[in-house]
């Protein structure tokens, strides 16, 4: 199979402006992936499927990733002009100071596609697409018209992560019921307070147990307060 760089070059030659970016995977598997711009996704996908050398005719897996807003702390070297008194003479001096800056990297939803070629027996080629943010601009183009096997998996990603796939033939919830609100696989999903007794709660369950206990005590206090 071609290397990631070759695939990237081939895509850029076929679909100019696709904005292909290689996302390296530092683990021993070294399965690097390609991040593509959602606006060119359908063109890129069609090329990957129809190209004779790649012939990625099988989409094995579609999955979602939820990236929360992340606070990034980074050290930046800042060069500024400072007026200083050197040897009793006032003059402007260029000074480089290392500054610690904090910035918020906005969160997004990401969809990952794993592609294989059953004809040429190679793969996987991993495609990634990012939404603009996690709240209102969560639309991505659907790749169901190119790989039919994406249909149910994109429905699942829509159901659990809330990514809206444009061009999907039948975008309904798949695993949860239709009346369900919210998307349970998102990392800020708060599930209903239905904690029940566990003999040895620990970790996340212990947190839930404490929250439930506090809520119940507050309710009990309110109840006695109303009674008095």
């Amino acid at each position: 199979m071609k290397t990631m760089e070759e695939i990237k070059a081939a895509i850029e030659a076929a679909a100019p402006g696709a904005g292909v970016e290689i996302v390296p995977n530092p683990s021993p598997s070294g399965q690097h992936s390609l991040r593509i711009a959602p606006s060119h996704a359908v063109a890129v996908a069609t090329f990957l499927r129809d190209d004779a050398e790649l012939a990625l005719d099988f989409l094995s897996n579609v999955t979602g990733v939820d990236w929360l807003d992340k606070e990034v702390t980074e050290k930046v070297k800042v060069t500024s002009t400072v007026t200083k008194t050197v040897d009793d003479v006032e003059q402007d001096v260029e000074e480089t100071v290392e500054e610690t800056r904090k910035r918020v990297q906005p969160g997004c939803l990401e969809v990952v596609y794993h592609l294989f070629s059953s004809a040429l027996k190679h793969g996987p080629v991993i495609l990634r697409m990012k939404t603009m943010n996690r709240t209102d601009q969560v639309e991505l183009p659907s790749l169901t018209p190119i790989w039919r096997s994406a249909e149910f998996q994109e429905r699942e990603v829509f159901d659990l992560y809330g990514v809206v796939f444009k061009g999907h033939p039948d975008l309904r919830r798949l695993l949860m019921w239709d009346e369900f609100k919210d998307h349970p696989m998102r990392r800020d999903y708060v599930d209903p307070d239905d904690y029940e007794y566990e003999p040895t709660p620990h970790d996340a369950v212990l947190t839930r147990a404490n929250a439930h206990k506090a809520a119940e005590e507050a309710k009990a206090r309110e109840g006695t307060g109303a009674g008095l």
Binding site: E179, K181, D182
Partner: peptide
């Protein structure tokens, strides 16, 4: 099937 859970529980 309610918005978050079964109703009633």
């Amino acid at each position: 099937q309610g918005a978050h859970d079964l109703e009633p529980t």
